[in-house]
Every structure is written in C-alpha cells, then in structure tokens.
C-alpha cells in the first residue's frame, strides 16, 4: 500500500499482559462454567466429560477465578500506583475511564451518524463503548467474583450469612456470567474486531500499537491533543515485528473462535 507508516503506542506492556490475563481467564471460566450451567444439554455433558468431569472442571474453574482475582488486584494496584505517583486525570478528563458528559453526547452523535443524520463524532482516547466494556468487566468481576466466592466457601460464609444467600448467589453467578459471556462474545467482538472497519480482528491489544492513519481516524481528538502537548514523539514506536503480528493472529483468532463457538452453543440451546 503506502510507504512505511509511523506507529504509536496505545497500550503499554502492563495493559497488554493484564488484558492477556483477562482473555485467558475469561475464556477459561466460560469453558469450565458453561458445561455446568448447561448440564442438561448434550454439548454441556460432552464438554464436561472432555474436561474431566464436573469436579475436575470445578478445580479448573477455580484456577481461572484465581487468575481473575489476580488481574483485578493488579489493575487496582496499577491505578493506586498512578495515584500515588501524582498522576492527574485518572478520575476525570480525556484519559479517564470515568464516564463524562461528553460520552453521552457522543453516544447520541454516533446514533445520529448511524442514521445518516450527522458526521461521525470525533473520539478521544476512550470511546463511550470502550468505557462501557471496561466498567462491565469491573462490575462483572466484582459481582460474579463475590457470588462465586460465596459458593466456593459456603460453610465459611454461612457463619455470618443466612443460607438463602447461596440460593441468591447461584442465580446471580449464573445469570451475570451469561450476561458477561453474551456481551463479550457478541457486542465486544463486534465493536472491536468484527465490524467491517476492523474485520477480521484488531490486533492492537496484542501489539499495543497502531499506525498513524488509524490513530488519527479512530482517536482524532487524542491525536491532536497529544501532538499539541508535544508528546507524540514519546509515543512513537516501530511497526510491530513479524513474530508479534503472528502471535496476535494466532491468539486473537483462537480467542475469537472459542468465544463464537460458545455463543453459538448458547444461542442454539436457547432457540431450542
């Protein structure tokens, strides 16, 4: 196509390792949890037996739960470190994950754009759907994690909590997990990887970098802001090496394939 492009970092190594942990643990939890939720189906039984039966699958599920708690803790620690280091704009501003009035405005503008009634909104570092999925995972880990811990150590929690809480925990754990799986494997996959502009996948979460053209197109406000502040050169990097691009493809397509297969089974079961 065009001459060698300039590349810029969007995610640092820490971000990428943490998202790698999210991918591995989320897929692991889904693969080991769904056979139990769908124990009455043929595929649920097949998958459970493939993984060594419900008890072995349960151990694996708890292993991925530990990975989840680990990345959750690592992320909170990362945020805490930034705060302690005096970094500003974590809770408010263009770099913050906290929803801002502008996000609601951009959501409305984006819908207008979908309907052909206006231009595409110009996004900063985080578009509103990116913030939503961040908070969805944050909420999901807290809710599924807490209810999962209750069910993991029922006799311990029964010392201080009434027994019906486990009945509630079963419903919350199962339904919230279904929501998480349903959201990630359809909405997140579409928004980030499968929509025609990104199809078949966006490797940025693995490579950490995007080219200048994409930077300007997807995050024009951030690009201009960073350039105005003179920080653009600090984000400058080499194009992703071949091994990293290959790794991105293998890891990305594998994760997509597992997710799509699972959502296919869930939808097929729901439709009967």
């Amino acid at each position: 196509m065009s001459p060698p492009e300039r590349y810029f970092f969007r995610f640092n190594l820490y971000h990428r390792i943490l998202h790698g942990m999210v991918i591995v643990s989320f897929l692991g939890l889904a693969v080991t949890g769904l056979p139990l939720k769908y124990a009455q189906t043929g595929w649920g039984q097949w998958l459970s037996h493939l993984l060594g039966g419900p008890f072995t699958t349960g151990y694996l599920h708890r292993f991925f739960a530990i990975v989840t708690f680990l990345y959750f803790g690592l992320h909170l620690g990362y945020v805490a470190r930034l705060i302690l280091a005096g970094q500003r704009g974590i809770f408010w501003g263009p770099d913050s994950m906290v929803p801002q009035p502008r996000d609601f405005v951009q959501l409305a503008q984006h819908v207008r754009y979908f309907l052909g009634l206006g231009p595409r909104p110009r996004f900063d570092r985080w578009a509103y759907w990116e913030k939503f999925v961040y908070w969805a995972v944050f909420w999901g880990v807290a809710v599924i994690g807490a209810s999962g811990l209750l069910l993991w150590f029922p006799t311990f929690f029964a010392r201080s909590l009434p027994g019906w809480i486990f009945n509630v925990a079963i419903i919350i754990h199962s339904d919230e997990a279904l929501l998480a799986v349903g959201f990630i494997f359809t909405i997140h996959f579409f928004n980030v990887h499968l929509r025609p502009e990104k199809f078949p996948m966006d490797p940025v979460i693995f490579t950490g970098r995007l080219d200048e053209e994409e930077f300007r197109r997807e995050h024009p406000v951030e690009y201009e802001r960073v350039r105005a502040e003179g920080r653009l050169e600090a984000l400058r990097t080499d194009p992703p090496p071949l091994w990293l691009r290959n790794f991105s493809r293998v890891a990305g397509f594998s994760a997509l394939a597992v997710g799509i297969a699972l959502i296919w089974l869930i939808v097929a079961t729901a439709l009967g």
Partner: peptide
C-alpha cells in the same frame, strides 16, 4: 444490555 447494544451494533454495521 444485550438488546440496546445489539441494536447499536445493528445500526453501526451498514
């Protein structure tokens, strides 16, 4: 959640 974001995706697709 799924229906609102599903609609969002459907509108975005074209």
């Amino acid at each position: 959640v799924l229906s609102s974001f599903g609609l969002h995706a459907l509108l975005w697709l074209p």
